[in-house]
Design a protein around this nucleic acid. Sequence first.
DNA 1: ATAAATATTTTACGCGCGTAAAATATATGG
DNA 2: CCATATATTTTACGCGCGTAAAATATTTAT
Lengths: 341, 341
Amino acid sequence: MSDSGIKNMEQFAAISGISRPTVSKYFNDPDSVRRSSRERIEAAIDKYNYRPNIYAMNQNRAMTKNIGIVVPLLSDTYFAEIARNLEQHCIDAGYRPTMFSSHGDPKFEVEILDNLRSLKPAGVLIAPLGRASDRDVLEKFCEDVPTIIFDSKVGDIGIEFVGSDNMQFARDITDYLCRSGEPPCFFEMKTPANPNAHRRRQSYLDAMAAFGFEPQVISIEGEGWAFEEIGFRGANDALARKLFSTNTILCSNDRLAIGFLTACYENGLSVGRSEGDAIRVAGQDGHRLTRYTCPPLTTVSHNYEAVSLQAAKALFAAIDGQENPWKSTRIEGKLILRASA
Amino acid sequence: MSDSGIKNMEQFAAISGISRPTVSKYFNDPDSVRRSSRERIEAAIDKYNYRPNIYAMNQNRAMTKNIGIVVPLLSDTYFAEIARNLEQHCIDAGYRPTMFSSHGDPKFEVEILDNLRSLKPAGVLIAPLGRASDRDVLEKFCEDVPTIIFDSKVGDIGIEFVGSDNMQFARDITDYLCRSGEPPCFFEMKTPANPNAHRRRQSYLDAMAAFGFEPQVISIEGEGWAFEEIGFRGANDALARKLFSTNTILCSNDRLAIGFLTACYENGLSVGRSEGDAIRVAGQDGHRLTRYTCPPLTTVSHNYEAVSLQAAKALFAAIDGQENPWKSTRIEGKLILRASA
DNA sequence: ATAAATATTTTACGCGCGTAAAATATATGG
DNA sequence: CCATATATTTTACGCGCGTAAAATATTTAT
């Protein structure tokens, strides 16, 4: 019960006693052939376990069922989670998703886009690197292939943009922190990889201004994607230098916050919102593990499901030929109150 | 500067003034054509930005440069990390790796293997689901495609097996824990997804016997891959029922340990090896974030680099035609002492 | 039962490229 | 400058499959 010598559809059709094109039709839609043909083909499949070559199939197809999903870094849990969601939606809708990671490198991003053309995808869902992306290449790609941009907006290209409302994230959590204790200092990377970081900072500044509080932004050094380590070092340094003017820290993202918590722990600072606690720490993103930090981290979670569903549906609609005007959707996150703040 | 109407190598060759097969040769090895031809081709590439279709290329190639990398779950950081390593080795060696995730589902694993045949890979690196895998399908696949099995051994199939020495992991850390304090209880899932869990338990039992200590295994309920949650609930339950006979817990893996730490925190148990601490907790795997738990987690880390390098090299050798007898390599992990134990 | 309408299968060609074998161009030796 | 050896390029065909258009089978109407 495996590939018993049958190497292609030609041979398979021969032993089935049916012409190859009919077999081809069967694989594209089993109901498109006569019942008798179908039964003979299925009997042969059971017997020889034949499967058509998916790449050859797509070679001369008018429209493939392929969908490319591209994210900056699959090892980042946020992207892994959203990519996983998108993948599932594609599968449920009968598409064949393939995932690609740019590894945080614009060169890879361009290469992936080039390779994607070979796949002849019906559509593509991409979270661009952001400011590091080769904008011209991206734009040209969007002209040629139905593409949804998600997470980081890059101009008004593609079918539409879907992402989280990062300004709302920072606004809501700043608001909460201001009302429940000392106003927060904002803790971020000086040169963030993702453009959303800038929106969060700006929104923090706006929210603080609305409250009439003096904002304080601590921008730490660090390159790359090892955010926990960067946050840990930055926090150690900032704590040693007593840089924080209040006892409340809002981190630009959860991974920085995780590093921050570790620094607090090692400096003997008890984190939390209770009487005896020395410092409050909050993050943003709704990272999987924030429920399991010590203490559990207060954060604003992306609405992963809504973002991925909106992006997927928009792509499917475009593939189905619907011509909608370009639009940008930013979905609200949800404040998750835990012990850390 | 993008695809300016040129849709295939035929057209590209025409405007370059060179025959298509020569262009084909160029893309397979730029030095295999006359310098003058090469220059004309490269000028045309600059001008029209043409790239051959990678899937059509592989259609009738004697040997592709494709390598498939298959893991049970890309969202698990251990697999994400090892897959990332493997991917890099493949790229460095001039291969084209493609990553696949079985999503913990044997059906997907079989489907991936089917699709992989369409890719005509030069070789495959796969971490099977383990006991859930369809063994017959796997075995048949290994007969047809040069395959290295890593992480979980399934029979003696494939070119060779490379994994971590899980028995050494549990032995060494049990040894350490016994020497540095009370002997550990073993905390694990009752029905682990990965067969290595059984090796770790057995090795714990052996090590305890060697010391003459009474072993204690706490096997908790829980299905799926949400290990932190499973560990958290199991720990809460076990702590409430005072199931642990000593103050030291060795978790079967780091993700369970992360959940365990959270349970300790919420139960007011201070974790660590200092005088005033109530409990010691250790994990196994060397999960990325164990450095940033509170307290940082003592664990045994996989030698990711050695495992992935050995697996990749073995595959490359097999692809190059070297006929080595089947072998199994288990690479030692490294004890990482931190504050939790 | 027969002609017309409809469903299904075949024929014939194409997709984008690799690759042996044949043809041609360049290099080497005298 | 010509013959032979060698480096390159072309010719011709194949890979595994999709898809219009033509051919055939089946169903429906009369």
